[in-house]
Design a protein around this nucleic acid. Structure first.
Lengths: 219, 219
DNA sequence: CCAAAAGTGTTGGGCTTACACCCATGG
DNA sequence: CCATGGGTGTAAGCCCAACACTTTTGG
């Protein structure tokens, strides 16, 4: 910050935002990938991303890219980490700010059906990825698992009304382990994050479970 | 990533690294600030920072700036968050990657004495700061307090050999609360992070305390 | 032998888990 | 009335904090 400044003097350098958009599919964490249509890494799989507009905040860029790729607004989105090794992109120096977002699998079915360049890949069987995107995804998975116990993140993967069993399934998918049912129920209930609606699940074959919703942030 | 690319087409945009360099001074968390020598915000206090070199990784840039300002190498340094709102710098669009670092107060006395543009400001009585640096410092303090219980960060604020009382003082300064002595001792000891050297503190007026050191990362 | 700080033994309470059981529903 | 999954009561165990106590040093 102490050196002299002249806009024209700066070497070409770009800032992008890349999204790690995760969901739970068949009991496993999965991430949305996009097939690259251009060099470098043409036809390889990569994270959806894009350049940050010159008058656009980083958060706004992430929301815009999310809307472009998944057609969605107001998703839970969090800045993850920044990656900027020289040479991570062969074209030029690019620093990328990675964000991660969580969406219910149901909300991704429409964009996945509409666009053939998108796919959902389970985290444990990722294809080879362009750039350093594999590293970025690993960071995101670690962060997600770390936050699960102390922050209300899992709800972003569920519809507005959900059963406790569905919530437990999400936790088990993210952590990759099975959890004790009564302990899980009580732990969730006395986090204060959720509240029961009087309603019951419909269409079930057996005893219907109560539907819960996220409490409208009291604290 | 899907739009066409031409290095010359990119609007001028720069990437900087800013450092939140913290220590404990007189029982309070404090941060290293540098008086700006140029516009904008000339003569205001700001975080030490600098532009990222075109062939330099983000981590390397942070280490370089740390060495320049504090004359130190191999400090514990962690990427914090990236800030890039348009307008955060009036000159041009600047995205900054904030890092935070922890150093024992003793290691800062030399640079502080040698350079009149540096000062150590307690977190609870910060002067007005340039740019969005106040926000960055708040993020760093929150992150530090959050990590204290589950990561071995406090040791970066202590010399290689330290007493449990000194460690407790650091924790109390960071958290701003006082802790129960026996509980703290045992909690620290069975984290497995530290081990006793046989040595005792010297020069004390009363019973000398045992000196501990960080275990050479077993796990 | 006294003051002051280091370090330890013991107790008690709160939180979480594990297991067993009951409840509600469809067929 | 049976199978199945939802939901709850209870007891055991672990972790952690508070308190009281002992130990070690300098003066």
């Amino acid at each position: 910050m102490s050196q002299s400044y002249d806009p024209g003097a700066f070497p070409p350098l770009a800032v992008t935002v890349d999204l790690v958009l995760m969901t739970v599919q068949n009991g496993h964490l999965a991430v949305l990938l996009q097939r690259r249509s251009e060099a470098p890494h043409k036809d390889e799989w990569a994270l959806p991303g894009g350049f940050v507009g010159i008058d656009e905040s980083l958060d706004d860029a992430a929301q815009r890219i999310l809307a472009d790729k998944a057609g969605l607004k107001d998703a839970w989105l969090e800045q993850l980490y920044s990656f900027g090794d020289p040479g991570r992109d062969p074209r030029m120096r690019i620093v990328t700010i990675a964000y991660f977002a969580l969406l219910p699998a149901a909300e991704l079915s429409a964009p996945l059906a509409a666009r053939s360049d998108l796919m959902l890949a389970p985290l444990d069987t990722l294809p080879p990825l362009a750039f350093d995107h594999r590293t970025i995804i690993d960071h995101a998975a670690t962060r997600l698992r770390g936050k699960l116990d102390y922050a209300p993140v899992a709800f972003a993967l569920l519809p507005p009304r959900f059963t406790l069993r569905a919530l437990q399934d999400v936790h088990e998918a993210i952590l990759g382990i099975s959890l004790n049912k009564p302990a899980f129920r009580r732990r969730m209930i006395d986090t204060g994050w959720i509240e029961g609606t009087g309603e019951k699940e419909s269409g079930g074959a057996f005893r219907p479970a109560e539907l819960y919703r996220v409490k409208p942030r009291a604290s």
